[in-house]
Write a protein that binds this DNA or RNA. Sequence first.
DNA 1: GTGTGTGAAATTCTTCACAGCG
DNA 2: CGCTGTGAAGAATTTCACACAC
Lengths: 219, 219
Amino acid sequence: MTTKIPDPSLKRLCNIYQILGSALEEGQRSISSAEIGKKLGASAYIVRKDISHLPEGKGVEDSGKLGLGYDAEKLKHHIAGALGLENPAKVCIVGLGKLGGAIIGYERLSPSGFEIAAGFDSNVNKLEMLKSRVELFPSHEIEDVVRAKGIEYAIITVPAGSAPEVLEQLVRGGVKGILNYSPVILPQDRDGVFILNIDIINDLRFMISHITASKGEKE
Amino acid sequence: MTTKIPDPSLKRLCNIYQILGSALEEGQRSISSAEIGKKLGASAYIVRKDISHLPEGKGVEDSGKLGLGYDAEKLKHHIAGALGLENPAKVCIVGLGKLGGAIIGYERLSPSGFEIAAGFDSNVNKLEMLKSRVELFPSHEIEDVVRAKGIEYAIITVPAGSAPEVLEQLVRGGVKGILNYSPVILPQDRDGVFILNIDIINDLRFMISHITASKGEKE
DNA sequence: GTGTGTGAAATTCTTCACAGCG
DNA sequence: CGCTGTGAAGAATTTCACACAC
């Protein structure tokens, strides 16, 4: 009876999860749907609706009660449980150029519950140069290493040309999800592997078009 | 009578724009809605609907006709016109850490129609070290430089703590849109400034929760 | 009173069905 | 025929209104 949570809701819940984390760090114990909504750029209604999508059960109900909002700690845990964010996820990074390098060295990953279990690059020289706490491997070992280490998720930051081949190896290695930062859109047809395509250039374009296309509208 | 194009449609049109570019590079002259849809991971119906949202007028109608799809060149131009992607956009980058550095050196930006007009960092030493073709300035000059150069868009890659202050300066300098890669969600209340919050960690979480939350669902 | 929880209405987006053109 | 263009049906989301708990 786990009614599937709609995608837009899921996205917001991830943001709410982060907002709750920040609030807690600043010593805030409880927070209202209105306050969350403001930080999120959404209405209080929708925040409550999103929260109501979380599966009931283990004491969810009592996260929000007191006449002044939700218990931040409880709500955060509850979201983590529903979204599968409780235990650290094993992630690998393929492509150690500028962007891949920046990600592999991103300090916020591990405190946020991600374990970077491996890095890959086709340029073997690069592997030796990079001093990293992460184990590095040449790209042709992707399938084996992913399988051996039980890596579940991958981040792709390779050039356009290599992306399809990398995808193939990752899928064969058995990853469940891929974050694709390469400049090609990878279609999600492969098995049940979920692919999220992200591209700075497209985001820039979206921003610009959003602004341009709404020029001259009122309201 | 420029019926506003819905956001989901805009996002896809940006992707379609990129797909058309790739197709053209490979010498493909025409392309059908079904083919675009496949690369996009969407239905042919919706591709056609998205295209139909483009404002009519300057010979849009004849981009797609021939019994086999759209004229890639014409359609691409037409999208560019409607989305405001025709002339290069002036962009600045605030925060020249690993991520900011990766973006400022991203080769694909300028061929895609973006002009990186300035880079900012609060660490003055860093400014001298970075050898870059882009003009670099200390962060306290953001407002002045943005105004003087007529910079329209900004990419923020600073730590969480500095983000609100940077936002303030950018807004005062007069930017129209901001791509925020810092780990705080900036709310869009300021004037008419559009903010797009992007966070790798949230994207990872969304991917994981999407996979986790749909576990055990059929169809 | 302040703030959550949720069914029902309103809106937005997607899918469909089919007309029309080359 | 193959493929586009689009009004109308259908589905999914968001907004609203109001009941209930502290």
